[in-house]
Amino acid sequence: MKFVISVLSSSHAPSTRRALRFAQAVLAAGHEIIRVFFYQDGVLTASNNLVVAQDQQDIAQQWQAFIAENELDAVVCIAAALRRGVLDQTEAQRYGREAANLAEGYQLSGLGQLHDGLQQAERLISFGGQ
């Protein structure tokens, strides 16, 4: 079965960890993840500037590794990302910012990509709140 997973809370929210464990179980069961869509505070998971305390799990890093290992299509809402300071090289140049911090494996794009994913998928599971 084809899934789209959306992540709506920041990387230290329990729901973002739950989303990752769910996504891992989806692939382990032989299903397909069409797209992971990061929206609202969820875009912070795609920043490579996060520094997590040593006694805590780095869920953003785990998401990044999971996406890379499975070559998933990870789309970050561009409007939500810009306002939270998550920029790729193109946007950093466009707005005259010193550095880009979008982690490898993610791409900035619009809400249209969520809609497009839904056209192909049979299930959308959203993880937000706490």
């Binding site: 079965m1 709506l8 729901s15 891992q24 179980a25 599971i125 993880f127």
Partner: peptide, 19 residues
């Protein structure tokens, strides 16, 4: 557990995530 959670999402015809 998570595998059972995924299986439920497949079994039900629709899934509504309240967030």
């Amino acid at each position: 557990d998570y595998p059972a959670f995924v299986a439920l999402c497949v079994d039900y015809a629709r899934v509504n995530s309240w967030t």
